[in-house]
C-alpha cells in the first residue's frame, strides 16, 4: 500500500539511482572482485588470490610512488593552504573594487583546466629557452632543469600545484572570513589586541571549520594527484613519471599497470588499496575534528 503510493517518488529517482548503481556501486564491487584475478582484458581472467596485492606492495615502482606521494602531500597541503590563507587575508584587507579585482585575478588559474595549466608550465619550465630560466638568467642564475633534475622535479610540480589551487582555497577561506561577525574584531580591539593577535585569537579559531574543510579537501585531491605530473612528464602510458620516476605517483602507477601493461586485476587492486588509504585518512581527519569539538 505504502509502496504503491510512493511509486511516483521512485519513478523520479530511477534515472539517478540506475546510473549511480551502474557506474558507481557496480564498479566498486566488481573492482574488488577483479582485484583477485590476473586479467589482461582480452583472455579469460585467472584467479590468483592475493597475488596482485602482494605484487603491488613489493614492487619498486609503488614504493617510489608512495614515497613521492608522502613527500608531495607533506609539502603541498600545508604550503597550498597557507598561501591560500595569506591570499584570503590580503584580499580581505582591500575593499570594494580592488577586493573584487584581486580576488578575480588570483582566481583565474582555477578556471584553467589542469591539463592546460600543466602544459603551460611545462613550457615555462623548459630548459634554456623556457621563460623561467630566461628570467633567472637575467639575475645571473644558472640554468635549472626543472623537469629533468630529479632533485628539483617534485618542487616544480608543487609550484604548479600551488599556482592552480591557491585561488580555489582562497575563495572558500575568504567566504569564511566574511562570515566572522565584525563585533569580535571590535571586541578584540577594545581589549587591546594588535593585528597579529587579532588573527591569532579571532580569525583562526573562528575560521577553523572552513579551514578543516579546505585541508581535508586538499588532502583528498593531493592523494589522487594525476593530471599535472602526468603531463609534466612523458604524457603517455609508455612513458610517465619522468627521470628516475621522480614524478611517479600512485594513480599514475595504477594507470600504467592497467593500460600500459594490461594488468587490469592489478590496477583494480591498486585502486582498492588507494581507496582504503584515502578513506582512512579522511575518516581520521573527521574523527579528530569531532574529538576536538567535543573535548
Amino acid at each position: 500500500m505504502r509502496l504503491t503510493k510512493s511509486l511516483p517518488n521512485f519513478m523520479m529517482l530511477t534515472p539517478f539511482m540506475l546510473l549511480f548503481g551502474a557506474f558507481f556501486l557496480y564498479p566498486i564491487l566488481s573492482g574488488f572482485g577483479y582485484s583477485f584475478f590476473d586479467w589482461d582484458g582480452i583472455h579469460e581472467p585467472a584467479f590468483v588470490g592475493l597475488k596482485n596485492y602482494e605484487m603491488i606492495l613489493n614492487a619498486r615502482s609503488s614504493r617510489i610512488a608512495a614515497t613521492n606521494l608522502l613527500t608531495y602531500v607533506m609539502i603541498t597541503v600545508p604550503l597550498g593552504v597557507s598561501v591560500a590563507f595569506g591570499l584570503a587575508l590580503l584580499v580581505d584587507h582591500f575593499q570594494g573594487f580592488w577586493a573584487r579585482f584581486f580576488r578575480s585575478v588570483y582566481f583565474v588559474p582555477v578556471v584553467m583546466p589542469l591539463f592546460l595549466a600543466a602544459t603551460i608550465w611545462r613550457w615555462i619550465y623548459a630548459p634554456n629557452f623556457g621563460v623561467l630560466n630566461l628570467i633567472l638568467g637575467w639575475f645571473g642564475f644558472e640554468n635549472v632543469r626543472f623537469l629533468t633534475d630529479p632533485d628539483v622535479m617534485l618542487y616544480s610540480l608543487i609550484g604548479v600545484d600551488v599556482w592552480v589551487s591557491a585561488g580555489f582555497n582562497m575563495v572558500i577561506l575568504l567566504a569564511g572570513l566574511k562570515d566572522i561577525p565584525r563585533h569580535y574584531y571590535e571586541a578584540a580591539r577594545l581589549d587591546g589586541a594588535n593585528k597579529l593577535q587579532e588573527i591569532r585569537y579571532v580569525t583562526l579559531p573562528m575560521i577553523r571549520p572552513v579551514m578543516i574543510f579546505v585541508v581535508t579537501y586538499s588532502f583528498i585531491s593531493a592523494l589522487q594527484v594525476f593530471d599535472i605530473p602526468w603531463l609534466l612528464t612523458g604524457s603517455s602510458f609508455l612513458d610517465y613519471g619522468g627521470r628516475r620516476d621522480a614524478l611517479l605517483f600512485p594513480v599514475m602507477d595504477m594507470m600504467g599497470r592497467g593500460f600500459g601493461r594490461l594488468g587490469f586485476g592489478q590496477a583494480a587492486a591498486y585502486g582498492f588499496l588507494l581507496t582504503l588509504v584515502i578513506v582512512a585518512i579522511t575518516a581520521t581527519i573527521f574523527a579528530f575534528q569531532r574529538k576536538k569539538e567535543n573535548g
Partner: peptide, 12 residues
C-alpha cells in the same frame, strides 16, 4: 576517490 572506480568503470 575516483581512483577506486576508474578501472572497473572502464572495464564495464
Amino acid at each position: 576517490p575516483m581512483a577506486a572506480t576508474l578501472i572497473p568503470t572502464y572495464l564495464l
